[in-house]
Design a binder for these strands. Structure first.
Lengths: 208, 208
DNA sequence: CAAAAATTTTTCCATCTGGTAAAATGCTAA
DNA sequence: TTAGCATTTTACCAGATGGAAAAATTTTTG
């Protein structure tokens, strides 16, 4: 627990230790899912004993929720950055790029969410039908505006977002399959980006 | 064990029981992943005791592999049905439809594979880099032919297949998220189909 | 330095889980 | 009907796992 009488050095050390534990937890939860992850595994990845981990977090579930909570904002950022006043095709291109960057740079985070959601999102359903749903509804409205203005082909905006999530996160979540099928291709993210841009941007521009 | 001296009735009963167990196992593995699934859970879903389940299958792992093995063919069918001598846009439309039908009709099967692959495909990697990879290479060649003939926009065929897998399986694997964000929409598969067809088919057809 | 507070380790435990042993029951063929 | 095989159930067990208790150690503060 954070106490009143502690020095800055102490709380910095505590914050650093908590961060180390959360990083280890991310590693283990992402690779095994909530049930598959063990406190011993997390402790080992963090380089400390299991009871020591439990000194910083009250339990396994609390660590898991702390992780998901802390990552949600980061996870929503790319969509939040899509501006209603930009050029539609460029805004979408940017969004696809940012999402693909997330898959490339933060595969563990992506797999953490993937594991949770595949198993029915028992612990983050509230976040999905709250914060996420609101944001999607807001951005869907933006896309509807672009469609109404004839700047994009008429598609369901929510399902368009699903398609962007699916295709980009695929490279993190199903990396094992991507690598098994396509080989260990260091260029795979560049190829993916080119393919997805062609597909989405060509696919969404009206043909007069 | 199957014995020489058993009647047809007996082996039929055995096959039926095995099928009942595998169905229960599919339910439980798909919802919880390999590690999260318990023999007790499978036994309960199958309406029998745990040792009785183990009378039919030697162990948890064997049940899991039996399931994946048995489902792989079904899983590859939609892609196998894509004909090189058809009209490219129609062939792709058909493939997308079949994949989306799979997601709609067999969500448990989809989530079973999803769980396995998200966690690094530890038990089916050989199948992915064997049978699946070969099939993908074969069909990628077909798509390359269509592109060379100017019938499709130039995209990487393997990544195009990834995009089709990702977008269609999304509706099974991440159904919890789809429903949280879009509400419990009974029409979601129809809307998805329309959106994906617009996106992919418009996106893949050359302009002018 | 010494007391107090924070951190870490050692020990331990109850529950869950995959799997075994063996007894009990059901079924089939002679 | 009964011997023999198939099936199912009832204990049971060893290891893993989440977590608690408490002792030991380190750090901070007066």
């Amino acid at each position: 627990m954070a106490r009143a009488g502690q020095t800055r050095k102490q709380s910095e050390a505590r914050a650093a230790t908590e961060a180390r534990i959360l990083d280890a937890a991310l590693e283990v939860f992402a690779a095994n899912g909530f049930r598959g992850a063990t406190l011993d595994g997390i402790a080992e990845a963090a380089g400390m004993s299991k009871p020591n981990v439990l000194y910083y977090f009250p339990g396994k579930q609390e660590m898991y929720v702390a992780l998901l909570d802390g990552l949600m904002e980061t996870w929503l950022e790319p969509l939040e950055a899509m501006r209603s006043d930009g050029e539609p095709v460029e805004e979408l291109r940017g969004y696809i790029r940012r999402k693909l960057d997330m898959a490339r740079l933060y595969p563990r985070e992506s797999r953490l969410f993937a594991n949770e959601i595949v198993q029915g999102a028992p612990r983050i359903e509230p976040m999905l039908s709250g914060r996420l749903r609101d944001l999607v509804e807001e951005k869907a409205e933006v896309i509807r505006g672009w469609i109404a203005a004839g700047q994009l082909v008429a598609v369901d905006p929510v399902h368009l977002l699903f398609a962007i999530w699916a295709t980009t996160q695929h490279y993190a979540d199903f990396d094992a399959q991507v690598q098994a099928v396509a080989g260990e291709d260091a260029q795979r993210f560049e190829t993916a980006q080119a393919t997805l841009e062609t597909l989405f941007l060509n696919g969404l521009q009206p043909r007069d």
